[in-house]
Design a protein around this nucleic acid. Structure first.
Lengths: 313, 313
DNA sequence: CGTGATTACGTTTATCGTAATTATA
DNA sequence: TATAATTACGATAAACGTAATCACG
């Protein structure tokens, strides 16, 4: 029994029981794959694959058991390598982050700058994606962690670290009359031309719904899908807009913002990581840089606590 | 990274960092061991062993991390093999049980007979040992489970399945006057010559202590360390004795027994198994044969529940 | 016929063991 | 000087790839 065999078997089931494709994924030849499977079947004295003549039909019960446990072993081997390389004094490696555009563009900028200074040997890889993509990439291990608003139904192998709220605000050009109000109402906002997110974004959906339930039909002059675009058009006098507070920074001199949490409930941002992946020291540190309350201990508790897959023999 | 390398490394630390002995344990040559360690060190880019010249002094921190995780992987591989062979219809293999003499000689006789009939393909291996030995053997994996009274401080990797009480009784020859009492007192018993266990056994300690606290000095005519011996001498008229109820069966026509739970608190018998070893179907069945209340579900709960090592990445 | 699994066979590589070497207690 | 790790080298084996074969759609 070798790890290579287990890896190969997993690739076989992951590629629809197609030995040729599995061979490519394992970086070997098709006959080698056949051999490995057959060798394992002989050693374990069970059939793993059900064959109809020379066609592979399904996986036997024993095979399923085997694959499940093989995956665990291979994960553990991966974690073993990470853990060992993590004991060294200096942290080297790669940190792959998936985030929404908003987080990548605003909150993470400063975090990543600080992280880069502290861990110059770590290559940072930042990928922007949708909520769903972030969850999928993190779940499959394509990235190490995800940051942003996230879908409600998460893959089971992920753990969401305690959320922090994302406030929203209304933004307007400097001299705009709405800026005189401390706590603008929906009606106030509805009086002016409005620039909104399109319905694909969470903010877009939320704004649309809130206005609808209030029975107000805002005068939407433009729909866009990026806070930066929206800000530019607000600055250009096309109207006012509701955007996430984190999208506003001190450099924005041509617009001004007023918090509207009283109108639009804050939505939640999360960090997600896999439960069963080893977290390297610098990964813990990155999380702590995003929010200091997530210490290593807190993160570990969250990973172990709720429905973490208990080790079963 | 191969399993062979991991196995070898574990053997090295398990044999006091002596590569020669580790080589023997791994069924290979000494140079091969050197090579494997060096290969891993190169692949992982860390030192595993600390060498002073050509002498191996200790294990590095990285090495400790590696060994711990390697053990887990190797255990999982063992469990994998067991789990796979357990999916088949017919159960084959070996069941290794450690038990106290008392359990082996009495309670287990019938259980093992029934088990043998139900699983003719399973080789049963029954080893008699002391409480401490049973715990140690089970903990180290030399046997699959232990049955009997057990020490209070158990190795952490064992789980004790809910105990059942072991009653004791006073035994005497057929016409003995004490047999006329339904509920003999300590004083009643103290009137007659007594055969006891020696102080090494739990019953021996218990009887000695109870009499001492009652301020009664029994007239001990013989000390022995086996219920069968004691029974023989009781039958021969040398005196009466206090033994575990399970040591009495219907074939004992020359002696008679009276329960004395009211005088000597029942002690507990346990079944112990390792938490991290896969339990085969027939092992669950064996446990259920010893006591039907320990169903597979109950056993699994006990194994997972209390302080079972949670899977941590 | 084309795709895909299996078989056969030859090559390569890497693992292992013997023997020699060096270092340490 | 004896024990033990390392190095060097030769032998063995098993893992792999190429090519040929066979099955199924």
């Amino acid at each position: 029994m070798t790890l290579q065999q287990l890896r190969c078997l997993c690739n076989v089931v992951d590629h629809g029981l197609n030995l040729s494709r599995a061979a490519r994924a394992t970086n070997t030849s098709q006959p080698a794959v056949t051999k490995m499977i057959r060798t394992m079947e002989k050693e374990l004295e069970v059939e793993i694959l059900v064959r109809a003549g020379r066609r592979i039909v399904t996986v036997t019960k024993a095979g399923q058991e085997l694959v499940a446990r093989a995956r665990q072993v291979l994960r553990d081997i991966d974690n073993l390598k990470l853990a060992v390389s993590d004991t060294g004094g200096h942290s080297r490696g790669e940190l792959r982050i998936a985030a929404t555009y908003l987080h990548a563009r605003h909150v993470l900028v400063d975090v990543i700058r600080r992280f880069g200074r502290k861990f110059p040997e770590v290559d940072i890889n930042l990928t922007v994606g949708t909520q769903t993509e972030i969850a999928r990439w993190t779940s499959s291990g394509e990235v190490d962690m995800g940051v942003g608003t996230l879908p409600d139904n998460m893959p089971a192998n992920l753990v969401r670290l305690n959320p922090y709220p994302m406030s929203r605000c209304v933004i307007a050009p400097l001299a705009h009359p709405i800026l005189r109000r401390k706590k603008p109402t929906l009606k106030d906002i509805g009086r002016y031309p409005l620039i909104t997110y399109d319905h694909r974004s969470k903010t877009g959906q939320l704004v649309e719904r809130i206005f609808a339930t209030a029975g107000i039909t805002p005068n939407v002059t433009l729909k866009a899908n990026s806070a930066d675009i929206i800000k530019a058009y607000v600055a250009a006098g096309m109207g006012i807009a509701i955007v996430q507070a984190m999208a506003i920074n001190k450099q924005d001199r041509s617009i001004r913002a007023i918090n509207v949490d009283h109108l639009f409930p804050a939505s939640m941002s999360w960090i997600v990581v896999r439960k069963d992946h080893y977290l390297r020291r610098f990964q813990y540190e990155f999380i702590a840089m995003v929010s200091p309350k997530w210490t290593r201990e807190e993160v570990d508790r969250a990973r172990a606590a709720p429905n973490s897959a208990a080790r079963s023999a």
